[in-house]
Amino acid sequence: MNDMRQFERDVKMTNTKITARSVNVHYGDTHAIKDVDVDIADKTVTAFIGPSGCGKSTFLRCLNRMNDTIDICRVTGLINLDGKDINHKSVDPVQLRAQVGMVFQKPNPFPKSIYDNIAYGPRIHGLARSKADLDVIVEKSLRRGAIWEEVKDRLDQPGTGLSGGQQQRLCIARAVATEPEVLLMDEPCSALDPIATAQVEELIDELRQEYSVVIVTHSMQQAARVSQKTAFFHLGHLVEFNDTDQIFTNPQDSRTESYITGKIG
């Protein structure tokens, strides 16, 4: 039993998907991320936890260079995806974002039909050769987003007309449709009821078979349920990064301990 676990961990260690070394992020004068080093493994769910404003979203957005779109944001340090520096000038952020998909905290379906929402990514990246192809991708993605049954009869209706939880699952399906290798999720369940949350968590667990998933969450239980690795951020520092059960049962840092027991944050 113990050997098995050791073995599993070794496999994970060798399959590192993303490595970050001394990453610093400044918004103008605000120093939001301070010298963060982290290794994100492939086919694993990594959870980022920490009090509000500690820089979880900021760090997440570094991983697909979404921070490029903010004028005042400056990112330094090294971030490698499959061993290649994503900030190198030969890397096209547009292609990077097709590889590293993102689901945002607030559901943001486009004001288009449900079908067009899902088809958006495949269309701009030319993933479907025919209309039939696209139909297949749309159905598959909606199924993976656990929303197919609810919307299959109204694919031509606007995605903005769905409920908040349905919208969020639509956004997850939309991100999955582009077949990313890494999926970044920024508090994907903050607008969902417990049932939809359970569905999304199940989905995340499924996605782990093929993707590497990074999820930001404020719910300790959620982090414990879905993730294998957990990173605790505090005031821009990565305080502790370890296996999830280690973090929750045997935290090394006193700040981590006070956070998970509810004393700070």
């Binding site: 779109t69 097709a98 939309r174 582009t178």
Partner: peptide, 27 residues
């Protein structure tokens, strides 16, 4: 047009031009 829509399009790997013509302009 809300920033979240821009983020959504860019996050899916749209270029700024694609985001403009397919999301911002219609909205």
């Amino acid at each position: 047009v809300p920033q979240t829509l821009r983020d959504g399009a860019l996050g899916l790997g749209a270029t700024r031009g694609e985001m403009m013509t397919t999301v911002l302009f219609p909205a």
